[in-house]
């Protein structure tokens, strides 16, 4: 069951310039693994080598940050939308 995944500008070049790609998967983890298999240039930018969510990205299921749901185990349905955005942080320290 494919779901739409919206990519941030910084990652689009790794997916042929696409803003949105359609990816199969029943959980956030399955969708992201399939995404990285399909577009190997995204490897290491979305998931870590250990297969966990990279700390430099935020992944959303519709309006919710998946870290506040069940992270990679969060189930997804056909009408859901997944968004990936860079985590934006810094400071004077």
């Amino acid at each position: 069951m494919p779901v739409d995944v919206h990519l941030p500008t910084v990652l689009r070049s790794q997916a042929g310039g696409a803003r949105t790609v359609s990816v199969e998967g029943a959980t956030i983890g399955q969708v992201l693994h399939t995404l990285v298999e399909t577009y190997p240039g995204l490897a290491g930018q979305v998931l870590t080598d250990e297969g966990t969510l990279h700390r430099f990205v935020n992944v959303y299921l519709n309006d919710d940050d998946v870290r506040y749901l069940n992270s990679l185990d969060t189930p997804v349905g056909e009408s859901d939308e997944i968004s990936i955005l860079p985590a934006v942080a810094g400071g004077a320290d």
Partner: peptide, 19 residues
């Protein structure tokens, strides 16, 4: 989201809304 005088983290939901 860091609520700090020395660090900042753009609130992830605010970022999604802005995007």
């Amino acid at each position: 989201a860091a609520a700090s005088a020395k660090l900042y983290t753009v609130d992830p939901r605010d970022h999604l809304r802005a995007d």
